[in-house]
Nucleic acid binder design. Sequence first.
DNA 1: TATTGTTATACTCTATAACTATA
DNA 2: TATAGTTATAGAGTATAACAATA
Lengths: 155, 155
Amino acid sequence: MGNWSLSKPGKPDPLNSRLGYLLKRVSTAAMGDLSLRLQEVDLREVDATVLLLIERTPNIIASRIGRILDIKTANMVPLLRKLEDKGLIRREPIDGKSNGLQLTAAGARKLSETRAILDEFERDLEQRVPEEHRDHIVPALQAIWATARRSDKKS
Amino acid sequence: MGNWSLSKPGKPDPLNSRLGYLLKRVSTAAMGDLSLRLQEVDLREVDATVLLLIERTPNIIASRIGRILDIKTANMVPLLRKLEDKGLIRREPIDGKSNGLQLTAAGARKLSETRAILDEFERDLEQRVPEEHRDHIVPALQAIWATARRSDKKS
DNA sequence: TATTGTTATACTCTATAACTATA
DNA sequence: TATAGTTATAGAGTATAACAATA
């Protein structure tokens, strides 16, 4: 345990003892892996995440998704249009300015496939963490995430 | 401890119980924070990292840095040129095709300032992890990183 | 033949600005 | 007045292809 954060004088920390560096490299590598896996369902990570949100909260509106995932509304437009063009989601007017988003039957089917990929990805990732650390990494990241200042609170 | 990975049937996992999702969000937020901090020395994260590598291994060549940091050699060119234009690094021919990279005096001074920022960022980040998890997160990430298939082995 | 370095370019992602219309 | 949605565009970051020169 834990003198990894101490640098010997003269010999500076190797990069891979820095939490910030590790977070970036591990995240990038993991997302690259996930992207490859999601090619099988022809979706990007963000598409999969949006489908998960729509499933979890039917009639969710675009701007709320954007707030949760930190996506500008301007960038939500082509994202949702592509999902709609693929027949995976449907928009139903809530009032004059908002559209509630729902999965189509095809979208629900696609999400089933996708969830299997996501779950396997998740399992594989967790198994690469040695047992003695495994139960700590998610709570640790959640704690960092919970203390990040950001616009929206949930998820 | 640890039933965060279990989803209740019907109620799917919230996103922020997924390791992959947390890695991405925490990494993005942390890098955004670091970018802001590095504005004080007019450097990006990647610039700071490259300066660290040059300091650690004087006469390192561009292609080796690219291999370590997963930066295509084509993209190393403008990166190094900018650092050279700022007077932070110097290139000295090793042979007819390679240039050894070194910090200039100004580069060494800049890196001192930069390292202070990096170290404070690191400390702040670590302190956001509850004590009971703190000694686990770096080893956990190192383990994931160590098992990522990639071109280069070190750092 | 593999490596180093370079130029030019394309693609993706994200950010910004201006705008319309509704709550 | 704030929110929802849209369009168009700019910028960064990254990837690809073609190339020259050296080990």
